[in-house]
Amino acid sequence: MISVNGISKKFGKQEVLKDFKLSFDTGNSYAIMGPNGSGKTTLIKSILGMVLPDSGEILVKGQSIKGSESYRSSIGYMPQIGRYPQNMKVGQLFSMMKDMRPEIKNYDMDLVEAFELNKIKDKSMGTLSGGTVQKVSAALAFLFNPEILILDEPTAGLDPIAVEILKSKIQRERKAGKLILVTSHILSDLEELTNHAVYIFEGKVFFNDTIESLKEMTSEEKFSPAIAKLMQWTLKKKSTTYELTHA
């Protein structure tokens, strides 16, 4: 569904992604992990077209995304911190997003209903609390039934009830065969939501396989210690990083 074919990106002198190769397939849910500055945000932004790689290409549904914007109608993106025009009302924000995808007529209103966003549709975005804004972001990401969902720290800032609603929604979508990319610092969430782990270290894929094989490879029973072990390995092999994959 998404193939990242050897992209490199430098910010100034810092090389954030180095000949980065990875592909994401339909029906899987990927946990994208890595220490701060490892390149995961750059990867997500590259897929979204917000960061333009220096070299290499990204294919979404077999088409290069370079110079294209229509592919983004099949992506639902939930930013880490959603900031919206202060004076825009919630209802207007939704109609604007719908305006931008005039070809899509079937809306997924699950989250809108579950978060009861209709009740606040006349409130200005500027008056909403951080958690409510996250609810709006989540609802918008799922609204258009996208084939690909990119969720950046989806549970941060949400109250426990909303977290549960969102999680079950993500799981439903995954079962429905969507491609889901999630970043999060909360490992338990990732374990619940994903079946595939991608660990990025210093601009390269350090680990990319199912969570089962991760546990197997690290000989750990649980997800968190498995990740911790992975991190220790990266520290040891800092000088010579290489890719670990299930043979």
């Binding site: 077209g49 914007e69 983004r72 109608s73 993106y77 930013p79 959603g82 900031r83 931008m100």
Partner: peptide
């Protein structure tokens, strides 16, 4: 941030 959000949309 809003501009970034827009950039993630098909426009």
């Amino acid at each position: 941030e809003f501009i970034e959000l827009m950039l993630a949309q098909p426009v």
